[in-house]
């Protein structure tokens, strides 16, 4: 029950972000107030740089961020599960994988983001997802490989390998089912990192362009008016913080559960 309580805030924030666009009281691309108007009248949080309703843009600005981060976290976790398990089952290959991961890790996230997004032609959301996957994968692979190594060395996997089972069978049927808790924790951590990458990209105006509503973009475009209507900057900042913090608390609860499980002898 207590564990459920630690997941509730994350579920609440995510639900609000997903349903937000339908709850918005005003259209997100028509002026309702004067630019940077203070809260009042029909606008609960005032107006933004163009006089659009901050409340409506706040409600509308989370869904794409959330969904893009979700796609990234799913792809990274899935790839890391396969690559990390294979690295643990085939140590020679594992050493090469570790070297490659070391190299990619050296690139600061923001720099990698800028490079991949620009080198990629066409759809910017696709480019953003590719960039975030490239940056996030090495960390996830290392965690999975470290967790899979003891499982890969255990008797039942060796027996299956000696019985002539193929690599993909060993990875998917013998090793991965024992790593469920680790994979959930990896997924949580990668989701938080993905929120970071996607919102920093939006802040640097890679990806969604105005007039699209996006929390990170709102912080950037309303920054100059922070004196006139602070809520146009504070509200989206708090929204990003709330999403990141609630998910990270949920992941922490998972990590504790993982540790408890690790103590139980297999």
């Amino acid at each position: 029950m207590r564990r459920l309580l630690r997941f509730a805030p994350a579920v609440l924030v995510a639900t609000l972000a997903l349903l937000g666009p339908w709850l918005a009281p005003h259209p997100i691309d028509e002026p309702v107030t004067a630019p940077y108007a203070e809260p009042g009248g029909g606008a609960l949080l005032g107006g933004d740089v163009l006089g659009f309703d901050v409340t409506s843009r706040l409600l509308a600005g989370g869904r794409e961020l959330l969904l893009t981060a979700l796609v990234i976290a799913v792809v990274v976790t899935g790839l890391a599960a396969l690559i990390g398990t294979v690295a643990a089952l085939r140590p020679a290959l594992g050493r090469i994988i570790e070297r490659v991961a070391d190299t990619v890790m050296m690139l600061p996230t923001v720099l990698a983001l800028l490079l991949v997004v620009l080198a990629y032609r066409g759809d910017s959301r696709g480019a953003l997802i590719v960039a975030a996957v490239v940056v996030g994968l090495p960390y996830a692979v290392r965690v999975v490989a470290a967790a899979a190594a003891p499982v890969a060395a255990s008797g039942f996997v060796e027996a299956a390998a000696a019985g002539g089972e193929r690599l993909w069978w060993l990875a998917c049927r013998e090793v991965l089912p024992n790593l469920r808790a680790t994979m959930l924790a990896v997924f949580g951590l990668r989701f938080i990192e993905a929120v970071y990458v996607v919102s920093v990209a939006a802040f640097l105006q890679i990806g969604p362009q105005p007039p699209a509503a996006n929390w990170a973009l709102m912080v950037r475009e309303n920054g100059p008016g922070i004196l006139l209507n602070p809520w146009a900057v504070i509200a989206p900042s708090l929204a990003i913080a709330a999403l990141a913090i609630t998910v990270s608390l949920a992941t922490d609860a998972l990590a504790v559960a993982t540790r408890r499980q690790a103590v139980v002898p297999r």
Binding site: I192, V195, Y196, S199, V200, F203, A216, V219, R220, G223, I226, V233, I234, S237, I240, A241, A244, I245, V247, S248, L249, D252
Partner: peptide, 14 residues
């Protein structure tokens, strides 16, 4: 746990 998860620009604007 809380500060690790927040992007720098959010920290900056707060």
């Amino acid at each position: 746990t809380v500060v690790v998860a927040i992007p720098e620009f959010v920290v900056a604007s707060l």
